[in-house]
């Protein structure tokens, strides 16, 4: 659906040149939710604006659904933009228009007749769950409701791609989750390709299929969300993954656990995908002469399946413990022995 080839963007500022996007190559498949994560200043805002031609690349090309956006201009670009819509961190609604008139705005731009606009707006209001708010002005809405208007507005012309520019960064955690669920729902129902940029790993974890990590204009790591969570390669990726797993906190806890459970072995298991749904633990206890204490654990859901970590204390004969650990290794579960008693 989207191909970015050797894409670069350099800004000329008062203090010289600023390379915002540096030789980026990304392919996004149809129907995929693709996340781009990076700290502010990493170039992700510029990157997403290259996708709908709000910025022109210095070199390289952007192709969306077969049309080269980077070389389009005038009417061709304006028509293309109706199929690549965008939602924003600060919603960017027109305060002078009611909810329904805001949603109708892109339809007016596309030259849709009044009666068809009214019909479409009604559908969209239903889709994003804003019934009863049709005549309200943006100033009378909460942040979450405003973003729902933004989403309805972006979907008005039946786009193929939805670009999300930090769409949940101005929302509280609960509203963030509701908006993310709405995005997943739209992705599934309409088969819409979604590209989102964020600095929150939580957003990536919750809805993305694949993720690219950006640092200083470059994509430093890219892959399926599960892989990235399981085996982050770059330091920056590890820091983002730590936003969810909280390693420092965990390290402290582990030291504490080693003190608390001096006998047996302390083992850390990382489950990925289907493994979380299989009764590995109960088999372990049934088949081997060991005692198992669950010390700590968590499971996080991602779009490609679940991802979990579990800390176990295994007690018993040392031979039995060895065998038990070998069994775990054999089960395609990432196993790490943390302490030897």
């Amino acid at each position: 659906m989207i191909q970015l080839q050797n894409l670069s963007k350099t800004f000329v500022t008062g203090n010289g040149k600023l390379v915002a996007v540096d030789d980026v190559n990304i392919t996004v498949d149809t129907g995929e939710i693709f996340g781009i994560i990076g700290y502010s200043g990493a170039g992700k805002s510029t990157l997403i604006r290259l996708l709908n031609g709000l910025e022109k690349p210095t070199s390289g090309s952007v192709t969306v659904n077969g049309q080269q956006i980077s070389s389009s201009s005038g009417q061709a670009l304006r028509s293309a933009r109706q199929k690549v819509s965008m939602i924003f961190q600060h919603f960017n609604l027109l305060w002078s228009r009611t909810v329904e008139d805001n949603i109708a705005f892109p339809l007016e731009i596309a030259g849709i007749s009044k009666s068809k606009r009214t019909e479409r707006v009604k559908e969209l209001i239903e889709l994003v769950g804003l019934k009863g708010k049709e005549k309200a002005y943006p100033s009378q809405l909460s942040g979450g409701q405003k973003q729902r208007v933004g989403i309805a507005r972006a979907l008005a012309n039946n786009p193929e791609v939805l670009l999300c520019d930090e769409a949940t960064s101005a929302l509280d955690p609960e509203t963030t989750d509701a908006i993310l669920e709405l995005l997943v729902d739209i992705n599934k129902r309409l088969g819409l390709t979604i590209v989102l940029i964020t600095h929150e790993m939580h957003v990536i974890r919750k809805i993305c299929h694949r993720v690219a990590v950006m640092e200083a204009g470059k994509v430093v790591e890219m892959g399926s969300v599960l892989d990235i969570f399981q085996k982050p390669q770059q330091d920056i990726t590890k820091r983002f993954v730590a936003q969810i797993n909280g390693p420092e906190e965990a390290n402290q806890t582990i030291a504490h656990l080693v003190e608390q459970y001096p006998s047996g072995k302390l083992v850390k298991l990382v489950f990925v995908g289907d493994r979380t749904e299989q009764p590995i633990l109960s088999r372990l206890i049934k088949q081997y002469q060991v005692e198992v204490n669950i010390v700590q654990g968590n499971i996080a859901q991602t779009q490609n399946g679940a991802y979990g970590t579990l800390y176990l204390q295994i007690e018993g004969e040392s031979l039995a413990i060895e065998k038990a650990i070998q069994y775990l290794h054999g089960q395609d579960v990432q196993t790490e022995v943390i302490s030897h008693a």
Partner: peptide, 18 residues
Amino acid sequence: IDKGVIEAARSMGAKTST
């Protein structure tokens, strides 16, 4: 005027006159 609103209109494919 909030620059974001103008950007949003551009992202929808609005002409300058619009």
